[in-house]
Amino acid sequence: MTASRSWKAWSCTVRLTVDDPAVLSAACGALKALMDRVDKAASRFRPDSELSAINARAGSMVPVSRLLVDLVDVSLVAASMSGGAVDPTVGGAVVAAGYDDDIEAVRRRLPQATGSSGPVPGWEQVQLNRRLALIGIPKGTTLDLGATAKAWTADRAALVLSKRHGCAVLVEIGGDLRAAGTPAEPWVIEVAEREGDPGVAVTLAHGGLTTSTRTARRWSTPGGFAHHVIDPRTGRPADGPWRTASVWAPSAVRANTFSTALVATGDTALGRLTLAGHPARLVDEDGEVIELAGWPAASRAA
């Protein structure tokens, strides 16, 4: 028997499902506490976050918590794994595109002119001293961990809660989903471009399943809609062939790295996905779907 609870946070839906109803409340409390810690460490919308301190003090090494060291470390792993397609130094480009506040606030205001910061500074410029917990970025660089922080949190929460309570756990934060533990039956998951859209159903026994899209977190500009997935090569919202990508991988961070890279850089990321062999479902600009590397062909409309 499973039990589930969902709520809104980080401008998306968070859902926690466990196969032991007795632990649901405690598990939800732990997940909320972890998300609060991550928010205080890595939110670029909070002036009191550690990330804001790093961005404000660009050009010097800044002491940070171990949590933020882990989050930046993961973002650099994602950048390395994706060949720079998922780059934490896109902060300036995201702001230039108009995404400089909570997404609901950005959507509410009148369309504003956007600019282009050019190619992003590059993740290789980030200085990370794990032993001393110091992080530094060059002047003119702005970090944004939005691409990996949710997936990291889903991974972390699912693994910790599954081990702590001895049950199967499913953590969903926006499009990033992680299953841990051994459920009696695989979880049945709906995959869709946006919440409420028609989707397909698959089963998930373990690992991470993420969906990245440029159709959901977007806002109006004088030149049309802009979105939050930045192509690091141009510093502008991506306009590649895939508007949405869903990927399965052993962890949510890994899955998210590939799904984000596919939307951000298109065919360039496809080669890396092929080498990795992770199942993927791609939706192109016209809505045509391509399923790769063992994505369940018998999935049905959910």
Binding site: D176, E193, A205, G207, L209
Partner: peptide, 25 residues
């Protein structure tokens, strides 16, 4: 977690199974 790189964690859903989670963009 697991280290398999194939589709080991993913499978086809039964027609009558209610969904228990979602991966929505």
């Amino acid at each position: 977690g697991s280290s398999d790189s194939g589709s080991g964690g993913l499978g086809s859903a039964q027609q009558d199974s209610p969904t228990q989670g979602g991966s929505h963009g």
